[in-house]
């Protein structure tokens, strides 16, 4: 059986309108095609200005393509009448947690989405409690958002999307402004959403170790996909990634250098554990 595609980019092009005398060279998307099956955890990688934030905004109709078509669960995002339906399906979490929290109390903020959708008050209460428990912020429901840490704020933002019961969550560098601890909190939450709730996650990031955890990695450059596949197969292309200005996970880097130095080591290593056992194998042979 073929998996159901939830987000589909069909030969999409988009360019920001440039002001007079300026050229909008960054964030352009050009002939971009991508199918995201339901339930997938997809990571999108790329250096700054490669168009990865643009595709995030194309996914729920904040931006609409100049040409080509983006469909979400079969709905065309470029039709104005569909915009609410699209956003009911695809939620979005942004980089700066401060700029997406609208209320002065945590639980009110989580309730904001369902309130806008006109959900029944009792149902909203259930959804809010459920969402806050899912991200582990239930005890903080009566707090003021500005007293929370960055990671906690970002989890509140995720709860806000959860409470809308979207099938899909797009995250535009949600950990970029967080400390390592907050980043870990948010990554754990994202994995939980995907594994336990079956929510399709599209994570836009420039942290390699986050991309490693995904089911599939797409690497972008100049508005186009240059690499697409399982993390293991994508990170094999160490030289290509470096040419694009990207890093590879440290463990992959180590294995790559060892191999270059003439050691018989596998080239599809992703994390420290794998790297350690591969190195051990090499040492045992000797």
């Amino acid at each position: 059986m073929k998996e159901k595609v939830i987000i589909k980019f069909d030969n999409v092009s988009f360019a920001y309108k440039a002001d007079e005398g300026e050229t909008a060279a960054t964030g352009v998307v050009d002939g971009f095609s991508l199918d995201v099956p339901e339930g997938q955890f997809l990571a999108v990688l790329g250096h700054n200005g490669c168009g990865k934030s643009t595709i995030a905004k194309l996914m729920n109709g904040i931006l609409v393509p100049d040409s080509g078509k983006v469909t979400v669960d079969g709905i065309d995002t470029s039709e104005d009448d569909n915009v609410i339906d699209v956003r009911k399906t695809v939620g979005m979490v942004f980089q700066n947690p401060d700029n997406q929290i609208v209320a002065t109390i945590v639980e009110d903020d989580v309730a904001f989405g369902p309130e806008n959708l006109g959900v029944d008050p009792k149902e909203i209460r259930n959804r809010v409690d459920d969402a806050l428990k899912a991200v582990g912020m239930y005890e903080f429901r009566g707090r003021e958002p500005h007293r929370l840490s960055g990671g906690q704020k970002q989890r509140v933002a995720i709860a806000g999307v959860l409470a809308m019961n979207t099938k899909c969550v797009v995250m535009d560098e949600p950990t970029a402004m967080l400390d390592p601890h907050g980043r870990q909190e948010v990554m754990d939450t994202i994995r939980m959403l995907n594994k336990e709730r079956g929510i399709t996650v599209i994570l836009i990031t420039h942290y390699m170790d986050e991309a490693v955890k995904a089911d599939r990695v797409v690497v972008m450059d100049n508005g186009k996909i240059v690499l697409d596949g399982e993390p293991r197969n994508v990170f094999k292309n160490v030289e290509k990634l470096k040419a694009l200005g990207l890093d590879v996970p440290q463990a992959t880097e180590l294995a790559y250098r060892l191999k270059k130095a003439g050691f018989p080591i596998a080239d599809d290593i992703l994390d420290e554990e794998e790297c350690a056992s591969a190195v051990l194998k090499v040492l045992e042979v000797k």
Binding site: K57, N60, I62, I84, R87, K88, G91, M92, F94, N96, D98, N99, Q100, V102, E107, D108, A111, F112, G113, P114, E115, N116, L117, G118, V119, D120, P121, I124, R125, V128, G160, V161, M164
Partner: peptide, 24 residues
């Protein structure tokens, strides 16, 4: 910030129009 906030509110289906309910 205002621009980003507007996007975030859009994403959460805020229309400013009728049909909004309140949890509390």
């Amino acid at each position: 910030r205002a621009v980003e906030l507007a996007d975030a509110m859009d994403c959460r289906c805020y229309t400013g129009g009728p049909g909004r309910t309140r949890m509390k």
